[in-house]
């Protein structure tokens, strides 16, 4: 539910894949076809021999060129963009479910309130081992993600029905309906607890 830019991830991964594929294909071709290898060597040597002239055309001082500085700047810019890409993963999680400002002051509803409310209404249910709630910003609304871990072998229908009943109680309590995702999952704890032979 995090606000990771998924299209960005996939686009950049496609670009990276295409570049690697092209470089790999060229390298393999150079190994297989003598003409490609010859072109590679001649073009590469010409470029390397032309380089001192280009560097000398824009001198910064006697030893370094502006082109070297530009190359360094390019490396730094790419590194900054890559850091940005890493930083864009995840995010959007919030601890505040709702906030209301009135003349008398500000009222905030924290996610932990919802968690406590759902836990207390589901704790009597023998089929449910644990309940966890997180809240996330979803398109200018706050969405809730309720993770329910049932006892091993419990019917998902019963578990989901119980969760929905608790959530309708939550709607009444809050007075506002939030987008909610219920995730029924088997945790490590459900895998370890043995099924009761008589049930």
């Amino acid at each position: 539910m995090s606000s990771t830019h998924r299209w960005l991830n996939r686009t950049l991964l496609v670009l990276l894949g295409l570049v690697l594929l092209a470089v790999g294909a060229l390298t393999a071709a150079a190994g297989l076809l003598p003409e490609v290898a010859g072109t590679w060597t001649s073009v590469g040597t010409a470029a390397v021999e032309g380089l001192p002239g280009i560097l000398a055309a824009a001198p910064l001082n006697t030893e370094t060129s502006w082109w070297t500085v530009a190359a360094l700047a390019l490396v730094l810019a790419c590194a900054a963009l890559l850091f940005g890409w890493i930083a864009s993963q995840g995010g959007g999680r919030t601890r505040t479910l709702a906030q209301q400002d009135t003349g008398a002051g500000t009222t905030t509803v924290e996610t932990s309130l919802v968690e406590d409310a759902l836990r207390s209404s589901l704790e009597g249910n023998g089929q449910i081992l644990s309940v966890g709630v997180t809240s996330w910003r979803v398109r200018r609304q706050t969405g809730l993600r309720v993770r329910v871990q049932p006892r091993r072998g419990a019917s998902p229908a019963a578990v989901v029905a119980a969760a929905e009943e608790a959530i309708s109680g939550l709607d009444t309590l809050l007075g506002v309906r939030h987008p909610i995702l219920v995730s029924v999952h088997a945790g490590a704890r459900a895998r370890l607890t043995r099924t009761r032979r008589v049930d």
Partner: peptide, 20 residues
């Protein structure tokens, strides 16, 4: 050279698969 190229292309293909 061929082996190295094939390896690179394979990694690229893996990225494409993950992306698509």
């Amino acid at each position: 050279l061929t082996l190295a190229g094939l390896g690179l292309a394979l990694v690229g293909l893996m990225f494409l698969l993950v992306a698509l």
